[in-house]
Design a protein around this nucleic acid. Structure first.
Length: 512
RNA sequence: GGCGGCAUAGCCAAGCGGUAAGGCAGAGGUCUGCAAAACCUCUAUACCUCGGUUCAAUUCCGAGUGCCGCCUCCA
């Protein structure tokens, strides 16, 4: 364990010391998707946010039981099924599948449980019955509504005043309801809609009741963390509290965590504005780790503007991280080949090899964990990693220049490398690719982006290699004019040459 | 109208009482025949405005301005 965690709780609008109900275990529930369409990057941000929280708490040693549900019965799904002449079951299972593909691609870990609403109907019915018995709900012509006035704490999460809500309402009054704020726990089903038998006739569950039912079924009556997008605060989460606490008489959730929204070019992302970006589209243009890093550069509660420039910036940053890992790998290889002398002893003169030997990896670790403990401040935690990267790059460069490294620096380097790996990979879900391959692919993309990816290349690998050999012969003989001529010829065919310490490599950029 | 949030360098973004993290871009340098890549170094003297509290405010309080979200399905 690394210190105390403080979490911003929507209930109190402030950061609170995190104390799980059971000190070794965390019960966490996150509202999942309604399966009727492809997921967009807003979903990606939400689930990456909670993925990092899940990974981090697990890393700290907590046994985290994480539930993330699927809403597979709902008005929108029914509408979509009708439009496509399909069935609710087919539509929901299709989009659940698509969602899982997206989450896997984004390296979002699978929660402990992923229940579907339709698998929890019995629990919802008994919850609803119980609420009627207690006087917190009433049946009205086949529908069952929650009586908002029966729950004293209504509004405590969204910090709303019920009286003002009524005053400001423009919603047409539903005649079946006693009060316009009352919300449906059970809906009488219409013709050709999926339905289940209930004490109130055939019907289907309302939306809010499912999360209470699933949360209680898998995690119990009181849990530690409940999360979701900030748009769910009202009315969804407010309603969950009302029905759950009325039913159990216990506090439903101790810490409410809500992530901020994703905007597109400073505008709210919405279907009516047609500025939706699906996860699919984003992954088409960017590596999943780039997207993860992009989100983690901003605190999870802030809104984030999704722009090409922003993600591009994150991509360059990720390359820098991979370059550092790569540099370290090459350096270790050099040491193994005895290209660098490892010597014991004290740091040499200030400013040269060993001047950094006093660095202690623990300082960086503490900074990192303190940042994460402060309401999961990934942006700050990442800055610590970048500091470390600069430090290790410098040590390696200095050592390579003098072909010598002292033991203390080497030890620091090894510790730093494993810490970078464990934090970025384990907690942030990054750096899971082979560094060399990642760098090559991404630098290639960078160039290709300026030319058009489909540029025709009218030259084979054999010929390229032959020309490279010819050119290197010219270079060896210092006949640079001829050497440059070959480079130019290849460039015209869409091939860029790069002379590295390991020989000449080439990249295909296309010619258009 | 009610509730909540945000305003920090060219761009993005942390910090939130003791004098400005990090990333991208940019500029120098190292390396290289040249180039590319990489690495290093540098890059904020009114932190939206005006008041107030304080020895000290970007950081707290008040007012203002400008954005944004929720109040209706929504991650």
């Amino acid at each position: 364990m690394h210190g105390n965690i403080y979490i911003y709780n929507t209930l109190s609008l402030s950061k609170e010391l995190f104390k799980p109900i059971n000190k070794d275990r965390v019960l966490m529930y996150v509202c999942g998707i309604t399966a009727y369409d492809l997921s967009h990057i807003g979903h990606a941000r939400a689930y990456i946010t909670f993925d990092v929280i899940y990974r981090y708490l697990t890393k700290l040693g907590y046994k985290v039981i994480y539930v993330r549900n699927f809403t597979d019965i709902d008005d929108k799904i029914i509408k979509k099924a009708n439009e496509e002449n399909s069935s609710v079951e087919k539509i929901s299972s299709k989009y659940i599948g698509e969602y899982q593909k997206d989450m896997n691609a984004l390296n979002v870990l699978t929660p402990s449980y992923e229940p579907k609403a339709t698998e929890t109907i019995n629990e919802m019915i008994s919850l609803t019955s119980g609420l009627i018995e207690k006087g917190n709900a009433y049946e009205s012509n086949g529908d069952v509504f929650f009586r908002v006035n029966s729950f004293e704490g209504y509004g405590k999460l969204s910090h709303k005043n019920i009286g003002e809500l009524i005053a400001g309402s423009r919603i047409p009054v539903n005649e079946e309801k006693e009060n316009f704020l009352d919300f449906a726990l059970w809906k009488k089903s219409k013709e050709n809609e999926p339905s289940w038998d209930s004490p109130w006739g055939k019907g289907r569950p309302g939306w809010h009741i499912e999360c209470s039912a699933m949360s209680m079924k898998f995690l119990g009556e009181s849990i530690d963390i409940h999360g979701g997008g900030s748009d769910l605060i009202f009315p969804h989460h407010e309603n969950e509290i009302a029905q759950s606490e009325s039913y159990t008489g216990k506090k439903f959730v101790n810490y409410w965590i809500h992530n901020g929204f994703v905007n597109i070019n400073s505008e709210k992302m919405s279907k009516s504005l047609k500025n939706f970006v699906t996860v699919r589209d984003a992954l088409d243009k960017f590596h999943p780790e780039v997207l993860r890093l992009f989100f983690m550069f901003t605190h999870y509660r802030s809104f984030i503007d999704f722009s090409f420039e922003g993600v591009e910036s994150a991509r360059q940053s990720l390359i820098r991280l991979y370059q550092a890992v790569n540099l370290y790998g090459e350096f270790k290889l050099l040491i193994n080949k005895n290209g660098i002398t490892v010597k014991d002893g004290n740091p040499l003169a200030a400013g040269s090899v060993g001047a950094l030997a006093a660095e202690n990896i623990e300082n960086y670790k503490n900074d990192f964990y303190n940042s994460m403990n402060d309401d999961f401040n990934t942006a700050k935690a990442i800055s610590v990693i970048f500091d470390l990267v600069r430090k290790t790059n410098k040590i390696i460069n200095d050592s390579m220049a003098q072909n010598v490294i002292i033991l203390k620096d080497l030890a620091f380097l090894d510790d730093a490398a494993s810490f970078i790996k464990e934090s970025l990979s384990g907690i942030f879900g990054l750096l899971n690719e082979d560094p060399g391959r990642f760098i090559e692919l991404n630098l290639m993309n960078l160039k290709a982006a300026n030319v058009k990816a489909d540029g025709g290349v009218s030259i084979g690998e054999e010929e390229i290699k032959k020309l490279i050999d010819e050119r290197n012969l010219f270079r060896k003989n210092k006949e640079y004019a001829s050497a440059d001529e070959i480079r130019k010829t290849l460039l015209e065919k869409g091939i860029i040459l790069e002379d590295t310490g390991f020989g000449t490599t080439y990249k295909i950029t296309g010619t258009k």
